[in-house]
Simulated assay, not measured.
Amino acid sequence: MLRECDLDGIVKKVIEKVKNGIDFKTKRVQEVVINVSARHVHLSQEHLEVLFGKGYKLTPLRELMQPGEFAAKETVIIVGPKGILQNVRVLGPVRKKTQVEISKTDGFVLGIEPLVRDSGNHEGTPGCVIVGPMGGVRIENGVIAAMRHIHVPARFAEENGIKDRSFLKVLVEGERKLIFDKVLARVSPDFVLEMHIDTDEANASGIKSGDKGLILFE
């Protein structure tokens, strides 16, 4: 039988776990900024020129948290079998391949079922039509619902035993307190520490851009 002191200790641990939402094995935490990624498009230079004109260059509107990344002034229209999404922001710089990132809810509007994928993984994903002021393009794949992920600086990853494309857990406090499981870690020396979720995840958890989460280390 458990001694009374042992029982008291177990009860205290259980209460603390429920209160904090942190697993017993968690040794420490690290704060991370969470930003919400609304629907957006990454364009190749070829598609950029079809949509906006020969030799066109994106016009930076505001810098994003990751170095070199920016929201452009340019927007496009996304066309699906059932509907359209207007004023979809283009993000820069240009990429080798065009990618459209939408939420599952956006997919209902378009009549497209986006697969939850890491950025750049387009195998088996649906396509769409993209319309700009000078023309339109049809992509055969590349429409995704971006997997929740954390940009992890290489030095921080090395110090904390985080491998590229491994998974982390992130605790978010607040009215709808929860733990995000299977948050993809993307490691690069060019990154700053930042977590991205889509609008569906943000709405469900009551998170807004700039809120903080806690990476849980076991």
Rank of each mutant, 00 (worst) to 15 (best):
K54R: 15
G132I: 12
D181V: 01
V41F: 07
L85A: 08
L110D: 00
V172N: 06
G83T: 07
A154K: 14
R176T: 10
T26P: 07
T98R: 08
E158H: 11
A157C: 12
G135E: 02
F180T: 09
I22T: 13
L2G: 03
K96P: 06
V50M: 03
I84T: 15
V109K: 14
M1P: 13
Q30T: 11
L51P: 09
E123Q: 13
L115F: 11
H151A: 09
E69R: 09
N20T: 15
V183Y: 02
G135K: 02
F24Y: 15
G111S: 06
K96I: 12
A185G: 08
I22Q: 12
A204R: 12
G161H: 11
G213R: 11
V100I: 15
V88L: 06
P81C: 03
I144D: 04
M65V: 09
P81E: 15
I207M: 02
D200I: 03
A146Y: 04
T26N: 10
G120I: 00
N87H: 14
V88M: 08
G83P: 09
E123L: 14
S209K: 08
N121W: 00
M134W: 03
I112D: 02
V172T: 13
E113G: 04
H40L: 08
G80T: 03
R117P: 03
K27S: 14
Q66G: 10
E175K: 14
V94M: 07
V50A: 02
D6K: 06
K27A: 12
H149S: 05
V129G: 00
D6R: 06
D200G: 03
V32M: 03
G142V: 10
H149L: 01
P81W: 04
G142C: 08
P114G: 07
V137R: 05
V131Y: 01
P189V: 12
N203Y: 12
E201W: 02
K17S: 13
G136V: 00
G132V: 11
V192P: 13
S209Q: 06
T199A: 05
K57G: 01
G92N: 09
V143I: 12
G124V: 04
P114H: 06
S44R: 07
V129F: 05
M1H: 13
K17V: 14
E194A: 09
N141I: 06
R176Y: 14
I77S: 11
